[in-house]
Computed example of a mutant assay.
Amino acid sequence: MSSIEEHHGVVVLGGGICGLATALALQRKGIKSLVLEKSNKLRSSGAAIGIWANGWRALDQLMVGSELRPKAIPLSEYVQISSY
């Protein structure tokens, strides 16, 4: 049985929004990374995310904000459902 050894500068655990954004930012800085995700497929569950002003600034730094803004649906009001 042979084994292949790989060397990576950065290993990102999790292929969610934060993990992929981190890997993209590292790639744009010329730093290679490996993203590890336990799920073996992409899934769409109809979920939504809220992005605050600082989140849009982060997306702008990743150079994807201008592509995502036209697809965003602004909320007209903030409603707190309940607190524990």
Rank of each mutant, 00 (worst) to 15 (best):
M1A: 10
S2L: 06
S3W: 04
S3C: 07
I4T: 09
I4P: 03
E5Q: 06
E6C: 14
E6W: 13
E6Q: 10
H7S: 15
H7P: 07
H8S: 15
H8P: 03
G9I: 01
G9T: 11
V10Q: 14
V11M: 09
V11L: 09
V11E: 01
V11I: 15
V11W: 05
V12Q: 09
L13T: 02
L13C: 11
G14Q: 11
G15S: 04
G16S: 14
I17P: 10
G19L: 09
L20A: 08
L20M: 14
A21Q: 07
T22F: 01
A23V: 03
A23I: 05
A23Q: 10
A23T: 02
A23D: 12
L24H: 05
L24S: 03
A25N: 00
L26E: 02
L26P: 04
Q27F: 02
R28W: 02
I31N: 09
I31E: 10
I31A: 05
I31D: 02
K32Q: 12
K32V: 05
S33M: 12
S33T: 13
L34F: 09
V35D: 14
L36N: 15
L36P: 10
L36R: 15
E37A: 01
E37Y: 09
K38G: 04
N40R: 09
N40S: 08
K41W: 11
L42M: 08
L42F: 15
L42P: 01
R43Y: 12
R43V: 07
R43E: 09
R43W: 11
S44W: 12
S45D: 07
S45H: 13
S45E: 08
G46L: 06
G46T: 06
A47R: 13
A48L: 06
I49V: 15
I49P: 09
G50W: 04
I51E: 04
W52L: 07
W52T: 10
N54R: 13
N54S: 08
G55C: 05
G55W: 05
G55I: 06
W56E: 06
W56K: 06
W56Y: 11
R57F: 06
L59N: 02
D60S: 04
D60L: 04
Q61I: 01
Q61D: 15
Q61V: 03
Q61F: 07
L62M: 00
L62H: 02
M63R: 15
M63Y: 00
M63F: 08
S66I: 00
S66K: 11
S66Q: 09
E67V: 07
E67L: 07
E67N: 12
L68S: 07
L68H: 08
L68K: 01
R69L: 07
R69H: 00
R69G: 01
P70A: 00
P70M: 05
P70F: 03
K71L: 13
K71D: 00
A72R: 00
A72Y: 03
I73R: 14
I73C: 12
I73E: 14
I73K: 15
I73Q: 14
P74K: 07
L75Y: 03
L75Q: 02
L75D: 10
L75R: 04
S76Y: 01
S76C: 04
S76P: 00
S76V: 06
S76T: 11
E77K: 12
V79S: 05
V79G: 09
Q80P: 10
Q80D: 02
Q80I: 07
I81E: 06
I81H: 12
S82R: 13
S82A: 15
S82L: 06
S82N: 08
S83A: 14
S83E: 14
S83W: 00
Y84A: 00
Y84M: 11
